[in-house]
Amino acid sequence: NQASVVANQLIPINTALALVMMRSEVVTPVGIPAEDIPRLVSMQVNRAVPLGTTLMPDMVKGYA
């Protein structure tokens, strides 16, 4: 199964993503693939992302 990017902490709106904020986990539904974690670093989220939430492409500015 494909691992997705999951929030490792609460990520406030407009926060630039850092490695420590993300982990990979096999979840349903599938979100952003875990292999894209390096690409996500320094991109901003466009909403608050609670701990344990799967990151979806529409949550990250400039990802989709």
Rank of each mutant, 00 (worst) to 15 (best):
N1K: 07
N1G: 14
N1H: 11
Q2T: 11
Q2H: 12
Q2M: 12
Q2W: 15
Q2I: 12
A3D: 07
A3E: 14
S4T: 04
S4A: 03
S4Q: 01
S4G: 04
S4P: 02
S4I: 02
V5H: 02
V5C: 10
V5Q: 01
V6N: 01
V6Q: 03
A7T: 14
A7Q: 01
A7S: 10
A7E: 02
A7M: 05
A7D: 00
A7N: 01
A7P: 00
N8I: 07
N8K: 09
N8C: 05
N8P: 01
Q9C: 06
Q9P: 01
Q9T: 14
Q9F: 07
L10Y: 14
L10P: 13
L10D: 15
L10A: 13
I11P: 01
I11W: 02
P12N: 07
P12Y: 06
P12I: 05
P12D: 08
P12V: 06
I13N: 15
I13T: 12
I13F: 12
N14K: 06
N14I: 03
N14V: 03
N14A: 08
T15P: 01
T15C: 05
A16F: 14
A16T: 11
A16E: 08
L17V: 02
L17G: 01
L17F: 02
A18Y: 05
A18K: 12
A18H: 08
A18E: 09
A18V: 12
L19R: 13
L19W: 12
L19A: 10
V20P: 10
V20T: 15
V20F: 15
V20Q: 12
M21R: 00
M21C: 04
M21S: 04
M22T: 01
R23W: 04
R23F: 04
R23K: 08
S24F: 07
S24H: 12
S24A: 14
E25K: 11
V26P: 08
V26Y: 13
V26W: 12
V26A: 09
V26C: 07
V26S: 10
V27W: 03
V27C: 05
V27N: 03
T28Y: 14
T28K: 07
T28S: 14
T28D: 15
T28C: 11
T28E: 15
P29G: 03
P29E: 06
V30S: 13
V30T: 11
G31E: 00
G31F: 03
G31W: 03
G31C: 03
G31Q: 02
I32T: 02
I32E: 00
I32C: 04
I32R: 00
P33N: 12
P33Y: 11
P33I: 14
P33R: 08
A34T: 06
A34P: 06
E35K: 08
E35V: 10
D36R: 07
D36I: 07
I37W: 03
I37A: 08
P38D: 08
P38Q: 12
P38F: 13
P38W: 11
R39A: 08
R39T: 11
R39Y: 07
L40V: 05
L40K: 01
L40C: 03
L40A: 00
L40E: 00
V41K: 05
V41Q: 05
V41F: 05
V41M: 07
S42I: 03
S42C: 09
S42Y: 14
M43D: 01
M43T: 04
M43G: 02
Q44H: 12
Q44G: 04
Q44N: 11
Q44E: 10
Q44T: 15
V45E: 01
V45D: 00
V45I: 06
V45W: 01
V45L: 12
V45P: 01
V45C: 05
V45Q: 00
V45S: 05
N46A: 11
N46Q: 13
N46P: 02
N46R: 12
N46C: 08
R47T: 10
R47L: 06
A48D: 11
A48P: 08
A48Q: 14
A48T: 12
A48N: 13
A48L: 12
A48E: 10
V49A: 04
V49S: 02
V49N: 02
V49M: 05
P50S: 10
P50Y: 15
P50H: 10
P50M: 09
P50Q: 11
P50R: 07
P50F: 10
L51C: 08
L51H: 12
L51S: 14
L51T: 12
L51M: 15
G52N: 12
T53I: 10
T53L: 15
T53S: 14
T54Y: 02
T54K: 04
T54C: 05
T54V: 13
T54G: 01
L55G: 01
L55E: 00
L55Q: 00
L55F: 09
L55Y: 00
L55H: 01
L55K: 01
M56N: 05
M56R: 06
M56K: 08
P57N: 05
P57E: 07
P57L: 05
P57Q: 09
D58C: 14
M59P: 02
M59G: 03
M59K: 01
M59S: 06
V60L: 09
V60W: 02
V60C: 03
V60A: 01
V60F: 04
V60H: 02
K61T: 13
K61C: 13
K61D: 08
G62V: 04
G62H: 09
G62D: 08
G62A: 09
Y63I: 04
Y63A: 03
A64P: 11
A64I: 13
A64K: 12
A64G: 09
A64Y: 07
A64S: 13
